[in-house]
Every structure is written in C-alpha cells, then in structure tokens.
Design a protein around this nucleic acid. Structure first.
Lengths: 248, 248
DNA sequence: CCCGGTCTTTAACATTTGATGTAGAGGGAT
DNA sequence: ATCCCTCTACATCAAATGTTAAAGACCGGG
C-alpha cells in the first residue's frame, strides 16, 4: 500500500493550466475523494454500454477514450491526459457511451458515482467546475470533428500532433526542449484521425523527412513548432496557450 | 409584442423526451428566464470568438451550430432543435468556440449570462441538469465524429438522416407518417458530414432511388426506417428511443 | 538464443471522394 | 414578366485515401 496523496499536495496543482481552488472547495473535494487506484497499461477502465460505479481524475499516465462501431472499427474520441476527469457520463446518463483504456501505467484519484449528486449539491462552485470541464471536453471533440471533417490527412496529423504537444507540455511532462512522451501507436493515431494505418504512416514519414518532427521510442520531438502549426492550418491567434481550466 | 409563454405552459414540456421538473426547480427556472426572442431565418445568434451576453433554450425552429476554419471551410457540429440549450460555452469559458445560426424562424427563451452562476449556485438540481445537457451534447458530437471518421459517405448520410428523423420526431414536429420538416440544404448536410456538395447529392439520389427516403420541399419522408437504419450501420439495439433529458 | 508477438515501413493496386463545369428549376425582388 | 440568386442535378476527370501483402525492427518469454 502506497501512501495516498493529499489533495493539498496534489501533483497536478502546480501546473498553471489549472485554476486555483479555495479552501472550502478543496476540503469538499477531499471528502468527495474515495481513494486512489493504480492500473497497468492496456487496462479498460470503462466500457461502452456499462455503468461505471466510479469516476476518476487522472493523476498521471495517458490513455484513450474511444467508441467502436458494430462493424468493429474504432474511433478515438480523445487522448486522456493527466488532469482529465473521466467517467462523468455514467454519473449523469445511465451508462457510458464510450470506453476508456490506459496506454501507460496510470495513477487515478477515485470518486464514487453515488456521491456526485450530493457533491454538486453541496458545492455549487465545484458543480460549476464540473460543467465547465464537460464544456471543455465538448469543445475538444468538436475541434477534432472540424479537423477530420474538413482537412486533408497531412493537416489532420499535424494538428493532432501539435495539440498533443501543447496539452502534454502543459501537464509538465517535458523531456527536454521540444520533447514530450507520446506512448501511442500509429494505429491509435490513425483511429483518432479517421485514416488508415498505412496512410497515417505515409504522412508521418513526410512530416519527419520535412524535419519538423521526429517520433521514435514513444518520444515526440518537435523541431519546428511554428512549421508544425502552419501545416496544421492554424493561424497565429490559435497558438496561444491553452485556456485554464478547473481540476476536480 | 406577443404575450410571453409561462414556463408551466411551455410548449416543450409535453414531450416525453424531457424529464419532469419539480415545483421548486420550475419556479427557479422561471426567475432565471429573462424574456423571449423571435428571430428570422439566417440570423447569427452567436459568433465564434465573441462573448454572448445571453443563452437560450430553443422553443421552436431549427438551426445550425458550426465552426469555421481559417481557410474558409465550415463544419456543422450539430443541428439545433427545439429544447436545445445554446450558448452555455460563453457562460463558462470566456468566449464562444462556435457559431449558431438559425435556419428557420426561431422562438427562444432567453437567459442572462451573468445569472448562470447564481442560478446554478441556488439550484443544485438545475446545475446538475445543465451538466447533464452538456454531457448529452458531447455525446452527440462524439457520435458524429465516429460516423465521419469511420464510415463511407452513404452510411454517414443515412445515419445523419436517421438521427434527424428521430430527434425531430421526438419534439413533435410530425407532418404525417414518416414525414418531418427538414429545412436544411444539401450544402448544410455536406458541411455536417465532411463531404463535398456534389458527393452528398450523389449519395442522396442513391438513397432516394432505393426508395427508403424522399426529401423534397424541406420535408423528409422516411419510407422504410428499418432499411435506413440498416444503411446507417445501426444495430437493432441502437434504434431504441432517444434517452430522456432535462430541459432548462 | 531463438520464437512469436506487435509495431513500423514500403509497395502496388483499387476505390472513394473531390474539383470543375454546365444546366435547369424555383423563389423573391423589382 | 424579368432578372438574379440559390438550390438541385448530373457528367467527367483528377486526387486523396483505402486495401492488401509482405518484410524488417523490436521486445519479452521460454
């Protein structure tokens, strides 16, 4: 049994990405917390169609959120990173509409499904934050929709890599200048972008020979962020830092 | 000046789609309400990047929620139907991340941005419902992502039409057996599905000559719902009625 | 140290989808 | 009625992407 992390010492709090929390809210969140959980890579945390008795905030590690089609294809909805709140759906609707799978080892902060309503009821500020997070998620998915719906493969891939670079950097997983951990496979990327594995590999190679990135041994190195953002079809004003968001 | 609609007599309440509301919550919602608004077709209710001072619940009429790319393309995120709550984003994040435009005349129930936080603070049940709605929206967008990312054009189009058929039927806009109003253009559908106008038209013709639907004069007739659902790649269990949701 | 996995890379070929151009139908403003 | 505009319809060709197949790289287990 490892010692549990106290909320005040939460390893995520230090990142500028997350909104500050006042004492009352912090105390309430501490009481909402039901424990912690550590899981291996490849663990299915939640399964489409099932009811999950818990939700989690990711303390460390990465994963995937995806849906599957009746004909067996998989669409990755979003990449799960530290600070993400997962499983909210099953607390609101009756069941999960997507699955969540870990890609690396993952350390989670656990909350009970049954205590969500009282938590929100007794802590309006935190209820507001939960809604906020939900809206942030919606926006991330909508952005992916735009990318997939309107952009050619090279633009999509550049966009996805740029966004991962920005998001992962913001939770402090720097490995040096322009280097971040990226534990996903090309198949994962393909499923996120709605491309075939082969085509994804083609385009990836292109971006690498162009010298703007390299991606080896689960480490992504961005050599020229400006060029990457450019390929991603982003204008200057879209490259601002990610807006701050609450942490549950 | 038309008389305003009282919440108790809200034309939407009668539909089974929406959750019942207790007296306290209804009263609170009535106080939250700031008035009504009627707008013409083609009105841009909210604009990407702008802060909206109001949000709305759609009482009647249809519209589109979309994002645009720097190169001028448009991705329709979702179709806006009666009962939808729009503009939540600008109450949470600083600004709207998408635009909302009316397609038909629209009748709206208006709320003030500044009163969202107090409203949620004083009415935990309603705060829960707002979050719920946000999660429902997220799921709709995620489903679109799956369709666009993984399915060929015919499947996507069949899926979109089937979903519109189900959603629009649920808010009572029946015009007879299998007939619903569908005021959108083929370009709107193309922008929602990530297809070119020409290709959308091709596929649409196909579905029509196959006899499963017809779509003329802004009216969609579904002749064979089973066949349409089939083409949409849906299994039997996905054709259940839409889950109930709250109404603000 | 070999074996059987998974992941990446490449090639050749098939298919879907997009781009462009043209035409006609319908609706609203003048 | 006429003009202008949007929307639908259809053909042709070009480009983007998918499919299938195969081989090499890497890794952990026996």
């Amino acid at each position: 049994m490892k010692a549990e992390t106290d909320c005040a010492a939460c390893p995520l709090r230090k990142f500028a990405l997350f909104e500050a929390l006042d004492e009352n809210d912090e105390e309430a969140t501490r009481r909402f917390k039901d424990g912690e959980r550590r899981v291996d890579p490849g663990t299915i945390l939640m399964h489409e169609g099932m009811v999950s008795e818990d939700f989690y905030t990711v303390l460390s590690g990465m994963g995937l959120r995806y849906k599957t089609t009746p004909d067996g294809k998989r669409q990755v909805i979003n990449f799960v990173l530290p600070g993400d709140f997962i499983g909210l759906q099953s607390g609101l609707m009756s069941e999960m509409k997507h699955s969540v799978e870990t890609t690396t080892r993952m350390h989670l902060c656990r909350f009970k499904r049954s205590s969500l309503l009282p938590f929100m009821r007794n802590n309006p500020g935190r209820a507001f934050d939960v809604t906020w997070l939900s809206a942030v998620e919606e926006n991330l998915v909508a952005e992916a929709l735009v990318s997939i719906g309107q952009q050619p493969a090279a633009t999509r891939l550049a966009w996805a890599l740029h966004r991962l670079y920005t998001r992962i950097s913001a939770v402090g997983a720097d490995l040096g200048p322009g280097r971040i951990p990226l534990p996903y496979t090309q198949q994962d990327m393909a499923d996120a972008l709605g491309l075939s594995l082969v085509h994804t590999n083609r385009i990836l190679r292109l971006l690498q020979t162009d010298g703007m990135i390299s991606w080896r041994d689960k480490v992504l190195t961005v050599h020229d962020e400006r060029a990457l953002a450019n390929r991603a079809g982003m204008t200057a004003d879209m490259q601002e830092t990610i807006p701050r968001r609450p942490l549950i």
